[in-house]
């Protein structure tokens, strides 16, 4: 049995209990957040994208980026064999180079958690998508059962999706309560809990104002991470969406003292892109977030590009895809 109720608010959060007390107060709060000007936010993101990260800074950033990868496969065709191979790669991304760090986690569907766990043990986390991923269209019971199954199978992290329909219809309290309930479903018998990431599917929320509101809503509901996308909807992660979410976690910590992580997922394929995200983390949220505990990349093909760039840094010559595993 849990020794503490997982929804006990942190001290800084207590001040916000009024906010989530009713649909009306929650709506007032979320709609009272400062707006986001699309053009300005995109210009800022693009500006940060022009930072030039070279030599020692690049080497440092590449290793950090590798350590932040949630190596992901979320296909109907996934098999135990496929995810075991991925798990091996997560442990040793570059078999030829023992100095290459492991990734942060392997992210799979809930039914494959055990397969991954068997390979990675406690060396790399296992993340499972849940709550009727990717659409979130199922009854609450099903979503919670989905979550509990994954936690029971040993998932260290749960990546849930919000009900975008409810969010877009303005039923914020419903979304809030679903997150709270899922957070409770993450609690293990020993009272610890699987870390919860809340996926907004920002491509469906459309506006940055919605992304900011969703971020605050999820943070108030007690999530550990906020995550952009499932990877199944375009656009997935973008620099400006991540910018808005980084601003949200920065402001949230300032307001409550609680630090929340950020995970852009989907569409980040190159080392160059990953470094742009790290620059953004550095300059928007600050270096407290430059750590796999607080920032992740949900990606699959990104890892190989990071490895190729890393090899280029160490050997001085360009590498090719044949020298890296395709799992």
């Amino acid at each position: 049995m849990p020794t503490t109720a997982p929804t006990d608010p942190a001290p800084g959060l207590a001040a916000y209990s009024e906010v989530t007390a009713s649909e009306a107060s929650l709506r007032r709060f979320l709609h009272g957040l400062p707006g986001v000007d699309q053009v300005g936010a995109e210009a800022r993101a693009a500006g940060l994208g022009t930072r030039s990260i070279k030599t020692t800074a690049k080497a440092w950033a590449l290793d950090l980026a590798i350590r932040m990868v949630d190596l992901t496969t979320l296909e109907g065709q996934d098999t135990p064999g496929k995810v075991r191979a991925l798990a091996s790669k997560a442990l040793r991304p570059d078999p030829a180079d023992p100095t290459c760090p492991s990734v942060a986690a392997v992210c799979v569907y809930g039914d494959l958690v055990g397969e991954v766990k068997a390979i990675v043990g406690d060396q790399v986390n296992v993340a499972a998508v849940a709550t009727a991923f990717p659409s979130g269209r199922a009854s609450m019971d099903v979503k919670l059962a989905d979550t509990r199954d994954a936690v029971a199978a040993g998932a260290d992290e749960i990546d849930m999706v919000i009900d975008r329909g409810a969010f877009l219809a303005g039923r914020y309290l419903q979304v809030f309560e679903e997150i709270v309930a899922t957070r409770e479903a993450c609690v293990r018998p020993d009272g610890s809990h699987a870390h919860l990431k809340v996926i907004f599917e920002t491509g469906e929320l459309q506006t940055y104002d919605n992304v900011r509101r969703a971020s605050w809503l999820a943070m108030l509901a007690g999530t550990d991470f906020i995550k952009t996308s499932t990877g199944k909807v375009q656009p997935a992660a973008t620099l400006p969406v991540t910018l808005v979410m980084l601003e949200a976690v920065r402001d949230f910590r300032e307001a409550t003292g609680v630090q929340i992580g950020v995970k852009p997922a989907g569409g980040i394929r190159t080392a160059k892109d990953a470094i742009k995200y790290l620059v953004m983390v550095n300059e928007i949220a600050g270096d407290d977030w430059l750590d796999p505990d607080w920032f992740r990349f949900g990606a699959s093909t990104l890892l190989n590009d990071l490895l190729m760039q890393r090899t280029k840094m160490t050997t001085g010559r360009y590498s090719g895809p044949d020298y890296f595993t395709l799992d």
Binding site: S52, I53, K58, W60, V279, N282, L290
Partner: peptide, 9 residues
């Protein structure tokens, strides 16, 4: 460790 941008002249 902080993210120190190396010179990029």
């Amino acid at each position: 460790m902080a993210f120190e941008y190396a010179p990029a002249p």
